[in-house]
Every structure is written in structure tokens, then in C-alpha cells.
């Protein structure tokens, strides 16, 4: 019994079908617990007032925005090395979810920045890197859409993902260099987990778990869809030949 058995599409669909209801249920429990706890039953921060409640969606979505790209990177590597189709399709399935997470992180950041910094947007290193990450997601998805042959698309997007990762890291440092200091530290220090108090930490933990589970559930579901869509295309092609 090895992990690679799940590279078989049929096996993947069967297993995820069994697991998915549980994942969805857990996602619901964690998200509802975390968000309700965070929204209704946490005190205001003495400095930030009620805006501290935004942390329960801002931090998990930002985490997932980066982790989704990491997951795509790993899946792309597996596709390049071992040629498992499920892996390439999982990377494709994850991209829109990651893009939405990035968008949520940017939007909530803007809503948070408006009262705290007095501006919706600042060219702060963190913000700028996320915007660039969002552009990478857009390009990656556009390339998938543009190429008709499935294997070619999988190959090209995997390489784009690898090269993109290197450049994303380069951009992160470049951006730091370009605008160090201006907004550094500021109110974002709440991001550092060591100085957040337990009252805020426990609901945040639930929210992070909820976002992770939501991502897993969505990727499973969307990968199944991609597998089926691919099989549909293959069958149609065979019909066309016959």
C-alpha cells in the first residue's frame, strides 16, 4: 500500500468520494465555530478596536494563498518526475482556489488598512508581494485555458509553476528591498503568533483549520471534476474517430 496508488484516477475518485463528506462536515464545523467565536465572542483589541475581528479571515486566507501555490509546486514536480495525471490535474484544480484566497487576503487587508493606516492600499512589501502572487495565479490559469492538448498544457504549466516560484521568491526580496520601512511593523505585528493572546488565538486556530479543510475539500472536488472532464474529452475523441 503506497501513496502512489492514489495516482490511479479511478482509485482517486473512489477514495475522495468516501472522504469528501467528512471533510466537508469538518470544514463546516471548524469554519462556523471559528468565525462565530471570533465574530461574536472575542473582546476588542485595545488598540485596533473591533477591526481585530478581521484577523480571523485575513490570516487564514493569506496562509492558504501561499500554501495553495506550494501545493501546486509540489504537484507540478510530481507530474514532471513521475507523470501522474492526477497530480497535474490537482495543480490545475487548486489554482482558482488559491487565486480566490489571495483575493480575500487582499480585500480584507484593504478593509483593515483603511481605518488602521488611513488608506485602502499602500505599496507595502507584503501587500505588493500578494498582488504579484495574484498575477502569477492569473497567468497560470490563463495558460491552462489556452492550450488544447492536455499533456502539453500540463507540461507547460508545470514548468511555468516552477519558474514562477523562483521569480515569486525573487520578487518578494526585491519588493522588500524596494520599499523597506515605510509601513514596516506597524499594525501588522499581530500577524506574529507569539504576541497574540489566547483569547484571539483559539478561534483563529479554528479558522485556520477551517480554511485548510475547505481548500482540501475544494481541491478534491475540483480534481474529480477535472478527471471526469478529461475522460469525457477522451471518449468524445474516440467517438469522433470511430
Amino acid at each position: 500500500m503506497s501513496l502512489w496508488e492514489y495516482a490511479n484516477p479511478v482509485k482517486f475518485i473512489r477514495t475522495t468520494d468516501k472522504v469528501l463528506p467528512w471533510v466537508w462536515a469538518l470544514t463546516g464545523i471548524c469554519l462556523v465555530t471559528g468565525l462565530v467565536w471570533g465574530f461574536f465572542f472575542t473582546p476588542d483589541d485595545f488598540r485596533q478596536g473591533s477591526t481585530v475581528k478581521i484577523i480571523y479571515i485575513h490570516v487564514p486566507s493569506a496562509l492558504m494563498a501561499i500554501n495553495a501555490w506550494l501545493m501546486m509546486l509540489v504537484a507540478s514536480l510530481i507530474w514532471i518526475v513521475r507523470r501522474h495525471h492526477v497530480s497535474a490535474l490537482a495543480a490545475r484544480a487548486a489554482a482558482p482556489v488559491g487565486a480566490v484566497m489571495t483575493l480575500i487576503a487582499l480585500a480584507t487587508g484593504a478593509f483593515w488598512g483603511q481605518p488602521m493606516w488611513g488608506t485602502w492600499w499602500a505599496w507595502d512589501p507584503r501587500l505588493t508581494s500578494f498582488l504579484i502572487l495574484f498575477l502569477f495565479y492569473l497567468g497560470y490559469m490563463a495558460l491552462w485555458e489556452a492550450i488544447e492538448n492536455d499533456d502539453t498544457a500540463a507540461d507547460l504549466t508545470s514548468i511555468l509553476c516552477l519558474v514562477g516560484s523562483v521569480f515569486a521568491i525573487l520578487s518578494r526580496y526585491a519588493v522588500n528591498f524596494w520599499n523597506q520601512g515605510l509601513h514596516q511593523g506597524a499594525t501588522l505585528s499581530l500577524d506574529k503568533e507569539e504576541n497574540i493572546s489566547d483569547v484571539f488565538w483559539f478561534p483563529l486556530l479554528f479558522c485556520i483549520a477551517g480554511f485548510v479543510l475547505l481548500f482540501v475539500a475544494l481541491v478534491f472536488l475540483r480534481t474529480q471534476t477535472e478527471i471526469r472532464a478529461r475522460r469525457t474529452r477522451a471518449l468524445l475523441a474516440r467517438e469522433g474517430q470511430a
Binding site: G49, S50, T51, I54, I57, F111
Partner: peptide, 15 residues
């Protein structure tokens, strides 16, 4: 939510 109601509510709404 005090004076930050708009920011908090719209964040949750958008999400």
C-alpha cells in the same frame, strides 16, 4: 463594533 463596523462587516461580507 463601534466605529469600525463598516470595515469589519464588509470584510466578512466579501469573504
Amino acid at each position: 463594533l463601534g466605529k469600525y463596523a463598516f470595515a469589519v462587516l464588509s470584510s466578512y461580507g466579501v469573504t
